[in-house]
Nucleic acid binder design. Structure first.
Lengths: 190, 190, 190, 190
DNA sequence: GATGAATGAGGGTTCATTCAT
DNA sequence: GATGAATGAACCCTCATTCAT
């Protein structure tokens, strides 16, 4: 990957993510991406050796970005309920504001493009969240359950509700989000 | 005269669902399916006019089968907590026993193969579940929230936890399932 | 070719000719023909060993039928001008009344379905016409030219005018036909 | 950067026209054409979006080329008989020298490849010929008949005679052509 | 590095023909 | 004989990737 023009990378990322939202992972062609990014098809192969590498790279960037987004305004020193609320809201907000990236990440999880290694590796970005959950468990605020179970429970419900709303053309207002928060929070409480 | 071999329909369904699990909806070819079903490619087109029709048909069958499975052993006369537990367990069990169909359904929901009409139409199979939720709300057992929100919350968390477990090669034992149940149930309680 | 039901032969001929008019020789499928003839596809192969054989057979029948039609009401004893007018009108009338057969014959002439042998063989049906032309030449009524040239000249102009009229949705009235006759007749006059 | 190789267009045209002569319009495959043109199948689709577009393009080129050929050495100032003779000879010569294009044009006229619009549009190339016929009519040299009838009569007879000669493996010598000219000319004379 | 023309394997689909009933 | 399901080669077209400029 010889990098000449860093701005092209950005254009490629954005085009890829947007096109995957519109056409699905398998429905997007390298030609589509290059056109949307304003470059030639061949140029794509200067930046990425092939489609899989491109998708993996974009996946990783989204993964990091989203994990980082989840921690906006959050401090490990926050009390559990404050921290949990912040992170929950960040998770929701990321999906609403960057729906295309959310869907891209979703599509990647069940795709041959994303290798098992990459998938596992990406878990590490969520460590601060696992730490928060641990604190909640240590303080007997929340149920003492497996991290994967707790996070899967929360992330799964948020994902589903947001997708349902989006594809049903019903926007999620603050009230609905607060209700979803309450569902999740009441669920994990010890 | 040779009659249409109805057993081929079954072979096609199973092959399709299994291959979609392995390769994704868009990654499956008609050639793959016919080979797996033990028939010639052209024969596939006797049973289904094209790939989209095939996928829609399999989708509908899975949809009905799953909805029916969810109601196993359930009676509308069951008290809310009993009925909810039965249905919850059925939802989980279906996903564990028919993981390939579960994934197939998941993939269909955000795919051009499934038309909007078919998607909406399939909601009707869930009516008994909506009725149960209504009873819970009427009896002030559970939170008085939108059906889509409640079901999205439950289904979403179940889906995510089961997929995480499957792809992480960790089987979900009865204990974990009971814990997930408790998370969901505590969440919806009024 | 085991013949059981002679009426099926007729149905096949008519369907074939009509379908070729609608879809062109190469655009017609054996399935189309069998459906239009009200029989099963396999049955077609009891009557004809393959598509080429079917087309050749229909071609031959049309060829004979048309040649015979050309001689309606004609007698070799007719004076040249009378005979020529009769035959000319018959040629025109056949094309107008049996446009589908006319087009079928046209399409066959430049098709791999019709072998060279069949094409040559079919010339013999036109012998009475050649005899008439010879009489005209012997009597110094018409130009002393090659038969193929004379017949090609007449048939070609008739074919073209009738096709142009048909596809341009302009019906050929008696006046136009008389004018065409005059063109041809004046042309051949010595 | 590699630029589109315009010579490929020519190779494609020639291959298409030649193959249509050999196999008929519907019998020619895109694969055939690409092989004959010395390029890959996919390359064909860089130059033409699909088979229909390719055929329409080649049709238009042949149409223009032939119409232009018909006017070789012709001047609108020529007296009628001189002009008619020139154009008649050009029409014949084009068919003899470019038999494959002549047949290609013939096949196109009754084919779904050629849209009605294209067919009608192509008539305009023949305007100088219609003008000549009008002059002949105005000067009472030829019969005062419909243009379509006059042209159909001439073109039809020429087409038929040339095809008969070609497929009967008999070359048309100058004498035969002169005879055909006399047939047509005597026919149209007032 | 950048371009986009060129490639050809592979996808969905059709259809002449065969074959079990 | 009649049927129509079954077959698989072949068709049109797409697209990830390469390569000449």
């Amino acid at each position: 990957m010889r990098k000449k023009d860093e701005s092209k990378n950005g254009a490629i990322y954005e085009s890829t993510v947007q096109l995957v939202l519109e056409k699905g992972l398998a429905g997007v062609t390298m030609c589509d991406i290059s056109k949307a990014a304003g470059i030639a098809t061949g140029t794509l192969y200067i930046y990425f050796s092939n489609k899989e590498a491109l998708m993996n790279k974009v996946f990783n960037i989204c993964r990091k970005e989203s994990a980082s987004f989840y921690l906006n305004d959050y401090s490990p020193l926050d009390p559990f309920d404050v921290g949990f609320r912040k992170i929950f809201n960040n998770i929701v907000t990321y999906r609403l504001q960057h729906f295309e990236k959310f869907i891209f990440l979703e599509q990647c999880y069940h795709s041959p493009f994303i290798t098992e290694d990459v998938r596992k590796d990406s878990l590490k970005y969520l460590n601060p969240i696992f730490d928060l959950l641990q604190k909640g468990k240590d303080d007997h605020i929340i149920k003492d359950l497996d991290d994967a179970l707790l996070l899967g429970y929360i992330i799964g419900s948020v994902n589903e509700v947001i997708k349902k709303a989006h594809y049903g053309n019903k926007s999620l207002d603050h009230k609905k989000i607060a209700q979803l928060y309450q569902l999740c929070y009441d669920g994990i409480l010890a």
